[in-house]
Design a protein around this nucleic acid. Structure first.
Lengths: 229, 229
DNA sequence: TTAGTAAGTGTTAAATCAACATTAATAAAA
DNA sequence: TTTTATTAATGTTGATTTAACACTTACTAA
């Protein structure tokens, strides 16, 4: 009988988070050095087990909060991984989530205590289980997301320069973009506020700072568009 | 301790399949009238439980085969659903898959025995649990898929007319398409073989039959493109 | 005052898209 | 055999979008 609750096998359900951040060095992910078995001492994604009274989205939020201290983070479910021996201890199915966070906002204390660390995508260490695959999958998804929704609000500081935004897009898409075309395409979305203030760090001339127009940004988040960069 | 296997709760893991078919009436899904509790007698997606020695993809294949007799079907994982009481019997997380099948190829015997039936998307009955949501989600995904990969090979008979292909796209995207523009865009993909044979059912003039060029089709499946219809 | 550096800014040719109507082929009916 | 009815097949054009490209400006520090 195909549909029998009694004969069905129960499994552990884990949640693993691919946490993306962005700084002057590019796109990064937050990894943790495991101090528990199995694979103690190796690097892995941040994860945990689903609780009986919890939905997956909440488990992802809880896990992210535990390790970073952050609330109200943009997260999206990605995929369920179910290879039989993906976790050697017990049959565990893992549902991956990716999160976008502002790298400056996390709780450094917490991160240190958990032996977590930011790695540039390019030189991240090898990860346990199928976590490398999860990361690759998440990058593909992030790239896709970038083509149909605005991005940056979650990853950039409140005030940022056009160059920072450009470099964020270049990091995600991993290709060079034409500065002038980029600016006019971004401007056509009408999601930015240009401030009167300049950032004087990067050049003698100084570059104007921008913020996101939260209302318009969120409207665009809901209604997908096509952004050809 | 956040990472403790012993204290973690195990759950049932189900797989539910949104099975799409296409015929002269449009896009359809295969539903089953449950003859087991809970919700006996109501309509639901075709589903089952994950077995201990099975990965999710294989469970989906097994379930689809059980109800339709079909092998080698295009399937894709969609999403994991985890609301606490989504299944009233026991805590069950369900991973949905969508499948594309040629509606003429299924095993009618099997389908009848299981009280399964094809419904047009538009007038499908209300479904149990969160299955309505799963269907909506699957339609959105199918629509997206259609914009970046070729479609039709899985859903149409081996030989088909340009009109059938057009109507398939119209059904999926639920909008009318310009025939001439559609044809030239499809032709530019170079995935069709035009046969010397005509289908005389639909008109006095008769319309040319096409087949998919399997190699080129599969190449396009791998390398996403943008198809603006 | 000068030199150096990154910021800021528009134009154009090429490609793509969207809108649109007439002729062709055939079978059935007269 | 001719006419009629029906759907299939086919290209052009103006509008829009995209991609490529280089010089001037503003400011600081020497």
């Amino acid at each position: 009988m195909i549909n029998s609750y009694s004969s069905a096998d129960k499994v552990l359900l884990a949640v693993d988070c691919i946490i993306f951040g962005f700084d002057h060095q590019g796109l990064k992910i937050l990894l943790i050095k495991r101090d528990f078995e199995p694979e103690r001492g190796k690097w892995s994604l941040i994860g945990g087990f689903l609780k009986r009274d919890e939905i997956l989205d909440d488990a992802a939020i809880r896990i992210l909060n535990t390790y970073t201290g952050l609330h109200d983070i943009y997260m999206e479910q990605l995929h369920a991984y179910s290879e039989i021996d993906r976790d050697p201890v017990d049959r565990t199915i893992s549902v991956s989530y990716y999160a976008l966070i502002n790298i400056e906002n996390h709780n450094e204390e917490l991160i240190k205590n958990y032996h977590a660390e930011w790695f540039s995508i390019a030189d991240a260490p090898n990860l346990i289980f199928d976590h490398n695959e999860m990361v690759q999958h998440a990058i593909r998804r992030l790239r896709y997301r970038t083509s149909i929704k605005p991005i940056g609000f979650e990853l950039l500081p409140e005030k940022f320069t056009m160059r920072q935004l450009l470099e964020l897009y270049e990091a995600i898409l991993s290709k060079e973009l034409d500065k002038r075309n980029f600016i006019s395409k971004i401007n056509s979305l009408e999601i930015l506020n240009k401030l009167d203030e300049k950032d004087m760090q990067s050049s003698r001339k100084g570059s104007y700072l921008y913020t996101f127009n939260k209302e318009k940004y969120e409207e665009k988040l809901l209604n997908d568009f096509v952004l050809n960069l």
